[in-house]
Design a binder for these strands. Structure first.
Length: 594
DNA sequence: AGATATTCCATG
DNA sequence: GGAACATGGAATATCT
């Protein structure tokens, strides 16, 4: 440990003590803590029992004197290290997650020499599957989750070597500042993900059950279907004059529909909705109920909500574009019908905020398209297109803008997108160029430096077959289609990926601002865990929206933090660009329907 | 029987 | 013959 005269470390690397990295499972593991100076030189090292780690981290985070800032903690994989700290009530300000950083740097086109990173492919691994809350009392005894997912190395020597490789790679980058920003934001995302899992979404089981009873009928016996579903099913069978058909099996339902004269090629709802047959209305009603029951019914409640908290596992960087993935209870698909079940603890309130039209704004900012920025300035971007006479209605504006970002070429979008090309040439040039690069099999890169994957072997085979002398029209069509698909992917990648970077910067800034808010007096929100029960904290994040659980007395301060963080994210990524990122923010009541 | 694919629908 | 991006998850269908 550094003495008082030692320089303040810029980074502090955590790793399992190497003497036991390959040792069989023993109790009382040891952790080595290495302090690095601003140039990466080692300035201190200590080894301690795993159980002593939370106290050391707490000291370094909070005990640093005035003027001294806590280090940026360098860890192999945040879900390996952070849950035990959180369980001890210790949160950290800043981190560098080696696994997440490796995934970015080993692919980023901004890095001039990636060879050392690509050679270190032991760092090309998935995240540790977090142990259940309450079972995270040790770092190394828990033999991982289910399955045999490869983990990154956790030893101190491996961590130091990888960190050095990463620093060197960033140093060679054409724009190191952007990459550093991305790595800091990505790592902060790792911290937020662990924190939100530990805190949990406050969930009102009684309200959820009330919604279920309202929409489906009383809770049925195990295995039985709710009364309202049974009734709707009977209506369908009567209308089809087919007393036994199963509504749950598309392969059996489809011929039954056709026998009744309903000419459809699938049982999906948008196709069914075109028919006026009397069986359609109850069938759509049935399907909606079936979906609610299987995805978020009583079974979901029992499995995913405990002690008033829903705790999904968030997976930062889980999507190639940089968006988060999630697993456990379908956190990315919580239906809006159930939003009323998100309910603050007594004396607390929920604040939800989402960014209006994040992706087109990110596109306007990164492309420097002043006209597009102007269309969204201080107002709904879609209405801006109408005001400026580019399209006639808000609905048309939405179709045109989404079509431009997704690469639509047919139908209404095909008709409207060209108008955007005329009005917003810079923005359209950016996405058109990205699409062209993808069609050629190249890669594209987001604003901060996340690079798209290269197309797979199968894609290349299809392309080269179409170039053979004996290629058939079928081969050529297939190649053209695959090229178009990949072009739409890269077109969207730069926009979705840059929007994800803005959202990460927002989150990263927000969590630090929230940590500055005061703690409450009186009884804490105990279900949220020791690190969050006394202060406003993030409980939910989904691409462009956040929900904060805050003591009522601090609700306005937390709302300000959310707004300030959004403004700060815009400046941090696009300083100087005349693009704003307005929020729809609601305190207390349910989030406004989108 | 168990693994894998398909269909459908929920989210941004 | 295709068609507008990124997901997760349940239920059913199909393959081995």
């Amino acid at each position: 440990m550094p003495s008082e005269s030692a320089p303040t470390p810029a980074w502090t690397v955590l790793g399992r003590a190497d003497s036991e990295a390959d040792a069989p499972v023993v109790r009382d593991h040891r952790v080595t803590v290495v302090d690095l100076g601003p140039d990466g030189e080692e300035i201190g090292r200590t080894t301690l029992a795993e159980a002593a780690l939370p106290d050391l981290v707490r000291d370094r985070e909070g005990g640093a004197g005035p003027g001294a800032s806590p280090p940026r903690w360098v860890v192999s994989d945040t879900p390996k290290w952070y849950p035990v700290l959180l369980a001890s009530g210790v949160r950290i300000d800043r981190a560098h997650d080696l696994r997440l950083a490796h995934a970015i740097l080993a692919r980023s086109s901004l890095v001039t020499d990636r060879s050392a990173l690509t050679a270190a492919d032991e760092w090309d691994a998935g995240p540790v599957t977090a142990p259940a809350v309450g079972q995270a009392e040790t770092l190394f005894d828990v033999a991982g989750g289910r399955g045999h997912v490869k983990e990154v190395p956790h030893g101190i020597a491996a961590a130091l070597a990888e960190f050095a490789r990463q620093q060197a790679a960033v140093g060679t980058a054409s724009d190191p500042g952007r990459l550093r920003l991305l790595l800091a934001a990505e790592s902060a995302g790792g911290l937020v993900a662990a924190e939100m899992h530990a805190a949990g979404v406050p969930w009102d089981v009684a309200e959820h059950e009330r919604i279920l009873a309202d929409l489906l009928g009383p809770r049925p016996a195990a295995g039985a279907k709710p009364a309202k579903m049974l009734a709707a099913a009977e209506e369908v069978r009567t209308a089809l004059d087919d007393p036994n058909v199963s509504l749950d099996s598309p392969t059996r339902l489809l011929p039954a529909l056709r026998n009744a004269g309903i000419n459809v090629s699938s049982t999906s709802k948008w196709e069914l909705a075109e028919s006026t047959h009397p069986a359609i209305e109850p069938l759509l009603r049935y399907k909606k109920m079936a979906r609610l029951l299987s995805a978020n019914g009583w079974h979901w409640l029992a499995e995913w909500v405990a002690e008033g908290r829903y705790r999904p596992v968030y997976v930062p960087g889980g999507v190639v574009t940089g968006r988060w993935a999630a697993s456990g209870g379908g956190a990315l698909q919580i239906p809006r019908q159930l939003r009323p079940a998100l309910r603050a603890d007594d004396g607390w309130t929920l604040i939800s905020a989402d960014v209006a039209q994040l992706e087109p704004r990110a596109l306007a900012a990164m492309s420097g398209d002043r006209a597009m920025a102007e269309a969204g300035s201080g107002r709904d971007l879609y209405s801006g297109l109408v005001d400026e006479g580019i399209v006639a209605t808000r609905q048309e504006a939405k179709i045109a803008v989404l079509g431009a970002m997704y690469g639509s070429t047919t139908g209404e979008a095909g008709r409207l997108v060209p108008r955007l090309r005329q009005s917003f040439p810079a923005a359209m040039r950016l996405v058109d160029t990205a699409a062209e690069e993808g069609r050629r099999g190249g890669v594209v890169t987001t604003w901060l430096g996340r690079t798209s994957p290269e197309p797979g072997e199968g894609w290349r085979r299809v392309q080269s077959r179409a170039d053979q002398i004996d290629a058939t029209p079928h081969d050529e069509n297939r190649a053209r289609r695959a090229a178009g698909d990949w072009g739409r992917f890269t077109r969207n990648f730069v926009v979705q990926g840059t929007a994800a970077e803005w959202a990460l910067a927002w989150l990263a800034d927000l969590r630090l601002r929230l940590a500055q808010l005061p703690e409450i007096e009186g009884s804490p929100a105990t279900a949220s865990g020791p690190a969050f029960s006394r202060r406003a904290h993030l409980v939910f994040f989904l691409h462009d929206e956040v929900i904060v659980h805050a003591p009522e007395a601090h609700a306005e301060a937390a709302a300000d933090a959310i707004r300030e963080a959004a403004a700060s994210a815009g400046r941090l990524l696009f300083s100087g660009a005349p693009v704003d990122f307005p929020l729809d923010l609601t305190i207390g009541e349910r989030a406004a329907a989108k």
